[in-house]
Design a protein around this nucleic acid. Structure first.
Lengths: 194, 194, 194, 194
DNA sequence: TATGAATGAGTATTCATTCAT
DNA sequence: GATGAATGAATACTCATTCAT
């Protein structure tokens, strides 16, 4: 990557970060390109140098976080720990992302309403890869007798649903901090699997 | 209520039902008043005879379902059954509403981004009353030794989060029907409380 | 006129009075048919039984006052008093109408912006008849040596302009009452003619 | 002011001028943003780049002329001439504005029906400053014996009313030109003060 | 006569997007 | 690379008017 390309890549990331912030505050539909540009002391027009359009901008916000989440799962997978520990780690990681990237995370809920087909496919594909990891960990636990549940897919959905919900109500200033949350969730939700 | 008033009330409900459908498909911001009217073979203008504006229309969609949910909880509360059974019943009821009223239910997630202050207060109040019932059932179970968990509030949030998530992925044509879902959820999620 | 016709005529007058009030408060464009009906505890639709449309309603408000004004001038004309006294009487009368019928009077200022051609002709014609009386009184005064001014038409315009302006600022609760105003105007404005 | 700022200021003035024309022809309520833009071969949307909304646009039309009028009065005040001459000059100036800026002037009549509170205050304040100058000139004439009238405030109102009325009937093609009007008004209306 | 309900034409406003400079 | 300016499609909302009952 040339120096120029690096600079552009850096600028794109700045924009994504700014966009995430604004979108989080106002919601995707309400966040105007002007708002997003304003946060960075840029002007509307300039955004179009870095991103094709608003949807494209959003897609890259989205993609950023999905990649991060996937990477986490890949790492967990290779670790030499029990299935239960893997699930717990995955839950902890998911909680962390849900809280730390609250803004963008929230977009992931209903991508269908926002993205065009060309984008949606890629998102769905990555999303599926992500949940597949979860399913693998659970399957592994069932195989070696750690877990006894019947409804694997449902269990995974309950677990992810419970965690996803966090970003609806979580606030930094609230009564729980991230670590507490991670502990409680990891502990409570794995019970569903036993 | 006079005959006329009944007729109006009926018409308003029809509109709410139609609006729910369209909003569910397109999302609140994308659903135009014309779309909603079109579904009922009405014209835009007529909607304004029944509702002050788009937000007011949405608010009443919202309110309809909240009232229904609250009523359910009130009934459960008075029944002479164990705390665990109450929680299970509440979960089943919540699942039913999440599925049957999928469209509107989904709006409840982030009312703050949509409603004006005058509306938001009422919604929050009702919402709190609803979750309070849940907390009461859990508390009851702790008092009489049925449950042993420490984090009451968190547990309730995990349970509701898991169920709320259903409407994100559930479809009538999918592999699970409502009864199965209710059974699995009631069974799995109460484990968190034990 | 049959009893029925009398009743209708009465109702029409009621409506005109109510309309005047509302129009005065909100301005013609802002006053809705609903506002006007509301003032009379009627409904929108009923107004259309008495008047063809909003403009027609306005036209009759307008006409009412013009007729009243014309009648006044006709009476003054036949009186056996000096030209100066006639002008003074006309000014007093004009002041009275401007104040008492403040609401509708104000519409007379720019009828062209509001009325359709069929109405405008009749209004202009009546209006001209009204100002002609004024001109006649002034002419009479010039003929018999009471007045000495050159610009007859301009003088009349200044006088009427000054009086017409009253309704822009006059309020019942203000520092002047009607009689004072009539005295001051009659006294001051005739000086223009001497 | 930078070149860019000058350009913008110029464009804003162009728009105000165009808006005045259209508003004069159609009246404020009937003049659509599209009409106004059309006159300048712009599109609706572009107007919003320069002015916040329709009312804001109107306010600036209004303000432009008020500032002009005030400036005139300030200059007259400092001149070393008799009070009568000052009043005459003020009348001539007011006539000139009423005729030359006929379109906008006409809006000043009833600002209350059009402007929001934030704007109305500023307008009323400027308007009062304007009439205060008039009152000062009259007071000055009374102090030094040039004038003998009792009702100062009323006199000022009659004078301004008479002149304001001009724009209701005046047209460039009519029988009087501006100079004649100024002469006749200045001459006739000061008689009220003597 | 009166009215409840429906209609639809009209309008201000927003905002993503474009493009010349 | 950046931006100021312009655009136009989209959309919520208003209100005079109609008409069946």
């Amino acid at each position: 990557m040339s120096l120029r390309e690096k600079k552009v890549a850096k600028r794109r990331e700045d924009i994504l970060r700014s966009a995430s912030l604004v979108i989080a505050k106002r919601g995707f539909q309400h966040a105007t390109m002007e708002d997003i540009a304003g946060e960075l002391l840029m002007t509307k027009g300039s955004l179009y140098y870095y991103f094709k359009n608003k949807q494209d901008l959003l897609f890259h916000c989205h993609n950023l976080i999905l990649s991060k989440a996937l990477q986490m799962m890949e790492e967990i997978k290779t670790e030499d720990i029990s299935a239960k520990e893997k699930v717990e780690k995955a839950i902890r990681g998911h909680v962390a992302i849900a809280i730390e990237e609250k803004e963008i995370f929230n977009l992931i809920i209903r991508p269908e309403q926002i993205f065009s087909e060309e984008h949606i496919e890629l998102i769905i594909e990555k999303r599926n890869r992500y949940t597949d990891y979860f399913d693998q960990f659970i399957e592994e636990g069932i195989q070696n007798g750690e877990f006894t549940l019947k409804q694997k897919k449902m269990a995974r959905m309950m677990i992810l649903g419970a965690v996803n919900w966090t970003q609806v109500w979580y606030s930094d200033s609230g009564e729980f901090d991230k670590e507490e949350l991670q502990n409680i969730y990891a502990d409570s939700l794995t019970r569903i699997l036993l």
